[in-house]
């Protein structure tokens, strides 16, 4: 079919490994997490899976998950400063 119009289809990583944009990294405290799923629901990049594991190859570090977490179980830690 002749290409008439710029149409993008949803695929993983269409913009490359956007995790490299990150300044702050989300770190989950498993003791506090009660698996409510708010973080995954709000994540604009859909990088939090059903086990609440965060895909750091694509996570841009926006911090929305940490902001939304009702248990304050996610800390935003500057890249390279994690203990």
């Amino acid at each position: 079919m002749r290409e008439r119009l710029a149409i993008s289809r949803p695929v993983e990583g269409a913009c490359g490994e956007t995790g490299t944009w990150r300044v702050f990294k989300p770190v989950v405290d498993r003791e506090k997490c009660n698996s409510c799923g708010m973080c995954a629901m709000y994540c604009p990049d859909g990088v939090i899976d059903s086990e609440y594991e965060i895909d750091l190859i694509f996570c841009k570090g926006c911090g929305i998950c940490a902001n939304e977490c009702p248990k304050k179980a996610i800390a935003m830690v500057r890249e390279g400063e994690e203990s």
Binding site: M1, R2, R4, L5, A6, I7, S8, R9, P10
Partner: peptide, 16 residues
């Protein structure tokens, strides 16, 4: 040919 197809979502006229 390029009509919207809910079975195959896409972005129309996006950043190019």
């Amino acid at each position: 040919d390029h009509k919207i197809d809910p079975a195959h979502p896409g972005g129309y006229g996006c950043m190019t």
